[in-house]
Design a protein around this nucleic acid. Structure first.
Lengths: 214, 214
DNA sequence: TTTTTAAAAAATGTATACAAAATTATAAAA
DNA sequence: TTTTATAATTTTGTATACATTTTTTAAAAA
């Protein structure tokens, strides 16, 4: 009861630029703002009900993060995706190896849960569990720099996933399961190898679907 | 003559937020703004001779890039440096391996030049050549994402280098030479291994010097 | 003395205004 | 018709004003 009130008050007090940031980010990620769309400060300001100043600020932030480029929603090419994955494979490969040696018990349990939801959950749940699988592994490095870099890349990758019926990608759950198992058995070499292979498959699936669709 | 005029005109027309960005960045990197210093928008605006609006924008950009944190010049800890290097070692290790297979002839020549300046140049030249050595290798990946990430990290690392008499680090030139040689001989494994070792040494040198100084 | 409290000052977040630049629409020429 | 030139419109970059929040300072209480 009290908590609810606090939350509501807080929500009102949230800085306009945070509102703007979240509003624009959401609309980009859920596809309402299509790739290539020009973002006009004044129109967005009106839509959100604030002035241009905080809208500007949030656009600049999203520009830094890579979701906006030259006032337009990014429209990454095949090549961009390849480049992103080249980095991702290096970092997440390392993360998986790291997990095989240093992962906590709780994290391992959560990881297992994510794998299981892969076969028991509905589309929504599976999607979310799959993302969490990677987040847990990356998070276990306890390296904020690494976490931040991957987070940023993931939101760009998400733009591709949308257009792609990603949850239907074959073998995805099996691959997650194998990675989990290698980590469980403290087999770092194998965990890294499997993660890299897994992400390579992801990339290829995305690229293929793009060709088919566009 | 004509060119000079154009440059001057251009310089005048440069957006205020670019001026602000460069001004603040320079002052952070050359140490005039010490680590931990609070950045006050109005004071900077006055100093540069513009209004707060573009100053704000540039501060936000630098915040995204990691040189400013919560309105203060970053003051990275030992741990931060370790985390940065953990990522750097992965990416530059890969870059070195990549170079062993795919580097152009010109790039190789330039790389050799950098190594040579290491023994013939003055302090200034050596410092700059050492930085270029890494830039060339990373640049050869042709992966803008990777280049961007490393660039960003390097400016934070630079904050440490300043306080440290970096050009005197033992074996640095020799290590660069060995990496160059491995690349020249198309020995990817060795290039990667040596690069990782080299960066690890860099990290440890920085950490040691920090302890001594502070 | 150290700790609290109240007042003053400084700094930030946001709105608004306006000139310069970029874009779009319209009319004239090829 | 297409192309070019001009005018109208939109959009951006910057300055400025002001209310709210944060920080600092000074005074009072413990």
């Amino acid at each position: 009861m009290i908590r609810e009130t606090i939350v509501l008050v807080k929500k009102d007090n949230v800085h306009a630029y945070v509102q703007a940031y979240e509003y624009i980010r959401d609309r980009i990620l859920n596809g309402e703002l299509e790739r290539g769309t020009k973002l006009v400060e004044e129109r967005l300001a009106e839509e959100i009900g604030i002035s241009r100043t905080p809208v500007r600020e949030s656009i600049r932030k999203l520009e830094q993060e890579g979701l906006i480029k030259q006032k337009r929603v990014v429209n990454p090419s095949d090549m961009d995706l390849r480049h992103i994955f080249q980095v991702r494979i290096l970092l997440e490969g390392f993360a998986a190896r790291h997990c095989a040696s240093f992962m906590t018990e709780e994290a391992l349990v959560k990881l297992k849960e994510c794998v299981d939801i892969g076969s028991t959950g509905n589309t929504e749940e599976v999607m979310s569990a799959n993302n969490e699988f990677h987040d847990i592994i990356v998070g276990a490095t306890n390296n904020p720099m690494m976490i931040d870099i991957i987070d940023r890349m993931q939101s760009i990758i998400y733009l591709f996933r949308k257009t792609v019926v990603y949850h239907k990608r074959p073998f995805l759950i099996e691959e997650h399961h194998d990675i989990y198992k290698a980590i469980l058995l403290h087999n770092g070499d194998e965990a890294e190898r499997l993660m890299k292979e897994h992400l390579q498959n992801d990339l290829e699936f995305c690229l293929n679907r793009m060709e088919t669709q566009q």
